[in-house]
Structures are given as structure tokens and as C-alpha cells.
């Protein structure tokens, strides 16, 4: 089915199998293999990408659902040689080991920053009517959609905190 989609700033007009997930479209059709397939069922977060600035699981979406959408993947975060602040923070804090969940974690954290800026609450938000503040508890809860079996969670927390501090 004919689908027009912008990925990391590049427009693609493609004819795609209706069954092709956004994740497989990125990986197998556009050769953007940074988004990972950990479970293919929305239960690990390794495929997290940003669609129109909002983080979603690319495995639970069809490419044909994204006609006209703007998708950002891990490959679209750095500006040339300069890493995105979250990529640099993950590197500095050693917020990964095997690296397989890492692109999803980083895209997720990019989404998190935007959600905080927009004042969106989470389950960890103590008072839903107060301004949302990026506490450690907020980071942990908001990053819980990204499993890391190497269990780099303390380092991921430090990385998000570092990048958030740099952005503040």
C-alpha cells in the first residue's frame, strides 16, 4: 500500500505490505537497524521511536498507519559527529552493557524530556495538580517501558539526570 513517511528528515514514498510493522519497515526496508526487535509485542521497549515527537513502540504499529508522519529513530538524533546530549550521557554514565536496548532507551528518554516539558504527569507524580518535577522516582517510572536485562538501571537514571541537568 502506498505510504509517504518522513524518517529522520528524509521523505520516503513507498509501496509497503500492509502487514509490515513500522519496526520492520525501518529495519528491513530503510536499513535503519538501530531500532531493535526484542519482543515484537510491546513488552520490552527496544523498538521505541519518536513519531511526530511522541515515543511509541514501533513493533505495535503498521507502516501503513504512518502515512504523512514524521519518524525519528536513534539514527536521527546525533548532528553529524556531535552526539545528542542523551547519547553522550549514556556513554559517560555507562548506561548500557550489551547495547541492545540502548537505542530504545535513548529514544524513550528523548520522549520523556518532551513529556516533562509539556507538564505530563506519571504514576510517580505525587500531586497531579502541581507542576511536574523530574525527580529520580519520575525518571524510574517513566523509563519503565524499556527493559534492560543487563540491568543498567542505576546508570540509565544517572544518564537521564545528567542530560536533564545539562538541558535545564
Amino acid at each position: 500500500m502506498r505510504t509517504e513517511i518522513r524518517v529522520n528528515g528524509v521523505d520516503h514514498a513507498v509501496d509497503v505490505d500492509t502487514r509490515t510493522s513500522l519496526l520492520d519497515f525501518l529495519r528491513e526496508h530503510l536499513d535503519l537497524k538501530g531500532s531493535k526487535k526484542g519482543c515484537d509485542h510491546g513488552q520490552c521497549g527496544a523498538c521505541t521511536v519518536l513519531v511526530n515527537g511522541v515515543r511509541i513502540n514501533a513493533c505495535l504499529s503498521l507502516a501503513v498507519m504512518h502515512d504523512g508522519d514524521h519518524v525519528t529513530t536513534i539514527e536521527g538524533l546525533a548532528s553529524g559527529e556531535a552526539l545528542h546530549p542523551l547519547q553522550q550521557a549514556f556513554l559517560t554514565e555507562d548506561a548500557f552493557q550489551c547495547g541492545y536496548c540502548t537505542p530504545g532507551q535513548i529514544c524513550s528518554a528523548v520522549g520523556l524530556m518532551a513529556e516533562i516539558a509539556a507538564g505530563q504527569p506519571s504514576e510517580a507524580t505525587a500531586d497531579l495538580n502541581a507542576k511536574v518535577v523530574l525527580t529520580d522516582a519520575e525518571i524510574r517510572e517513566r523509563m519503565s517501558g524499556n527493559l534492560c536485562r543487563c540491568s543498567a538501571y542505576p546508570q540509565i537514571l544517572a544518564a537521564v539526570r545528567r542530560a536533564a541537568g545539562a538541558a535545564a
Partner: peptide, 17 residues
């Protein structure tokens, strides 16, 4: 920092598949 870290944070480390 991890030797291969840059590849991993940019999603460019190729895993087997």
C-alpha cells in the same frame, strides 16, 4: 568509556541479524 559505546548509543553496532 566503553570502547564500542559510540556504536551502541548511535544504533550502528550491527548485531547478528
Amino acid at each position: 568509556d566503553r570502547y564500542e559505546g559510540r556504536l551502541k548509543v548511535t544504533g550502528t553496532a550491527p548485531y547478528a541479524f
